[in-house]
Design a protein around this nucleic acid. Structure first.
Lengths: 101, 101
DNA sequence: TCAATACTGAACCAATGAGTTCAGTAACAT
DNA sequence: ATGTTACTGAACTCATTGGTTCAGTATTGA
């Protein structure tokens, strides 16, 4: 969850959703050193969101859809719980939450 | 999104899903100073996830279900995009992602 | 009025995290 | 064999963040 807190990381995942890429290829798309990108990839890998493996001297990165779904499920569960418990407060909210920003 | 990266903040939201609470009430549930809790509440408020308002000397905090749903929608959109684009890679993944950890 | 309550502002600290550079090491290509 | 490519380890900087304390200020209740 915290892995998706950083906008650069979200972009990397977006990028990877178009297909696997090497670290160098990824680095080409970001205004950041290759080392910086690699660090983000590592964070994403630790979080289980991407899988990498080295072939020769090139490290290929790809998404792991299952872990992605798990994260979405985590949020959905919470959302449901939150909304269910909030049902009986709706009229109270209608009074105090006029500004919908 | 980054607002939900901190576990304490998630707990606070969980707590608030049971009903509105004052800062002091919230602080009672966490091994943290009142000031610390207040800071988290502020982050959540800036993120639009909770709404607070002061009545007298007490600041009441409550959830904003709409913003919560928006966050969930954000993640769901991405998940769908990611999974759709990954469809044609499934066989490739089956070869290289044997270890399901 | 006066003491207690509930929060707030400001200043501070330690730890984390994003990002860098530089000096490697391993694999390719010629 | 050698230069280039692609990554890695280590060390460092800088900003942010989680958290604290302390001294207010405003509200409430007796």
């Amino acid at each position: 969850m915290a892995a998706l807190a950083d906008p650069t990381r979200v972009e990397i995942v977006d990028r990877l959703s178009a297909g696997p890429a090497s670290v160098t290829e990824l680095a080409g798309d970001f205004p950041m050193s290759l080392r910086g990108v690699l660090k983000h990839v590592h964070v994403l890998e630790d979080a289980g969101l991407v899988h990498t493996q080295k072939r020769g001297r090139v490290r290929q990165c790809q998404l792991r859809p299952t872990a992605l779904a798990a994260t979405a499920r985590w949020l959905e569960e919470r959302r449901h719980r939150w909304e269910r418990r909030l049902d009986h407060l709706e009229d109270y909210l209608r009074d105090n939450d006029e500004e919908s920003s």
